Amino acid sequence: MARVSANLIAAFRRTIHKLKHNAPYQWGHMGACNCGNLAQELTQLTKGEIHQYALEKSGDWNDQLIDYCPTSGYPMDLMISKMIESGLTIDELKHLERLSDQKILANIPLARRHHLKKNVKEDVILYLETWVSMLEHEWLNKHDSELIISKEKNIPHQVFV
């Protein structure tokens, strides 16, 4: 699972909000597809810029992720690096473009799970909502345990013993 952070969760939430409120969505457009919409929020690039960068190399998101080289100097590879720095993995990005991560799908009701289509905006929104819910749950669990440990370290009657 992604390296969870408040910034990553916020980027997911902004992406979902934009998609629900008529952000351009086109699965065949590198800047307006599943990965492209999330990339806009993580990189602050426009859909046009993302698409332009993608055209400097061949292939769709999956192909570009397979060919990803962090030292190539290609703008698309630099953008992917930024997404990885935000906490995502190459495999998660590949799965996002195809709506295929089994951990995420396992949290989608069975009636919908087997009928998701990679190029249907409503299905992308459901996938992203499910994923961000998982990330939020992980983030809360992590921070709750840190809070408990912090409280245990600062028990007043033990501090002054």
Rank of each mutant, 00 (worst) to 15 (best):
Arg3Thr: 15
Val4Ile: 11
Leu8Arg: 05
Ala10Cys: 01
Phe12Pro: 00
Arg13Glu: 14
His17Cys: 00
Lys18Asn: 08
Leu19Tyr: 06
Leu19His: 06
Lys20Ala: 00
Asn22Thr: 07
Tyr25Lys: 09
Tyr25Thr: 09
Trp27Arg: 12
Trp27Tyr: 15
Gly28Val: 04
Gly28Cys: 05
His29Asn: 13
Met30Phe: 10
Met30Ile: 04
Gly31Ile: 07
Gly31Pro: 04
Ala32Gly: 02
Asn34Gln: 13
Gly36Pro: 07
Leu38His: 08
Leu38Arg: 11
Leu38Ile: 11
Leu38Gln: 08
Ala39Leu: 14
Ala39Tyr: 13
Glu41Val: 09
Glu41Met: 13
Glu41His: 07
Thr43Leu: 07
Gln44Cys: 06
Leu45Gln: 13
Leu45Arg: 13
Lys47Asn: 05
Gly48Ala: 01
Ile50Phe: 04
His51Lys: 03
His51Met: 01
His51Asn: 08
Gln52Ile: 02
Tyr53Cys: 03
Ala54Pro: 00
Ala54Val: 00
Glu56Val: 03
Asp60Ser: 11
Asp60Met: 11
Trp61Pro: 02
Asn62Phe: 11
Asn62Glu: 12
Asp63Gly: 03
Asp63Arg: 12
Asp63His: 10
Gln64Ser: 08
Leu65Asn: 04
Ile66Pro: 00
Pro70Val: 08
Thr71Cys: 03
Tyr74His: 13
Pro75Thr: 02
Pro75His: 12
Asp77Phe: 04
Asp77Lys: 03
Asp77Ser: 03
Asp77Cys: 04
Ser81Lys: 15
Lys82Leu: 13
Ile84Cys: 09
Ile84Tyr: 11
Gly87Thr: 05
Leu96Ile: 02
Leu96Thr: 02
Leu96Phe: 10
Arg98Ser: 07
Ser100Arg: 12
Asp101Met: 08
Asp101Pro: 01
Ile108Pro: 00
Ala111Arg: 13
Arg112Val: 08
Arg112Gln: 14
Arg113Cys: 09
Arg113Gln: 15
His114Lys: 10
His114Asp: 07
His115Tyr: 09
Leu116Asn: 06
Leu116Ile: 08
Lys117Thr: 05
Lys117Val: 06
Lys118Ser: 13
Val120Gly: 01
Val120Cys: 09
Lys121Trp: 03
Glu122Trp: 06
Asp123Met: 02
Ile125Asp: 01
Tyr127Pro: 00
Leu128Ile: 06
Thr130Gln: 05
Thr130Asn: 07
Trp131Ser: 00
Ser133Arg: 09
Leu135Ser: 01
His137Asp: 05
His137Cys: 03
Trp139Val: 00
Trp139His: 11
Trp139Asp: 01
Asn141Leu: 15
His143Thr: 15
Asp144Thr: 15
Glu146Asn: 13
Leu147Ile: 14
Leu147Asp: 01
Ile148Met: 06
Ile148Ala: 12
Ile149Lys: 12
Ser150Gly: 07
Ser150Asp: 14
Ser150Val: 05
Lys151Cys: 12
Asn154Cys: 05
Pro156His: 14
Pro156Phe: 15
Pro156Arg: 15
Gln158Tyr: 14
Gln158Glu: 14
Phe160His: 13
Phe160Arg: 15
Phe160Asn: 13
Phe160Ala: 11
Val161Met: 12
